[in-house]
């Protein structure tokens, strides 16, 4: 597997990524060590899902694979589950184009 495994629990695919991928179902309250940092998960994070490694502000880009995978739609704390409820796509936004066309 490419990337860096955090205590067998999660995977950071590239340096500088702001999220890690859960390698098993992780429960809220679990402590995760990322290098010298330690954080506590604030949500359950199912297998394959992501959590923030660092605090993100609303509108900030989210990084995985060393690339931009989207944008936070609200402030996200370290250890918080990152998914469709707080992260949106920056591409393929026909809905945004339609709203702009109406203006």
């Amino acid at each position: 597997m490419k990337g860096r495994v955090l205590g067998g629990a999660a995977l950071v695919l590239a340096d500088g990524d702001s999220v890690a991928t859960a390698l098993e179902d992780l429960e809220a309250g679990r402590e995760i060590h990322n290098g010298n940092h330690a954080m506590t998960l604030t949500d359950d994070v199912p297998f394959g899902h992501k959590f923030a490694l660092e605090p993100l502000s609303a509108g900030e880009t989210v990084q995985k694979y060393g690339e931009v995978i989207g944008r936070a739609t609200e402030a996200v704390a370290a250890g918080e589950w990152v998914h469709t409820h707080n992260c949106e796509s920056t591409r393929g936004r026909g809905d945004v184009a339609a709203t702009e066309a109406e203006r």
Binding site: H49, Y65, E67, I69, G70, H83, T84, E88, S89, R91
Partner: peptide, 15 residues
């Protein structure tokens, strides 16, 4: 895909 943890098309594409 979303249930499986993929949040955006960018993330899916990069994988």
């Amino acid at each position: 895909n979303q249930e499986g943890g993929l949040t955006t098309i960018e993330e899916k594409s990069l994988g």
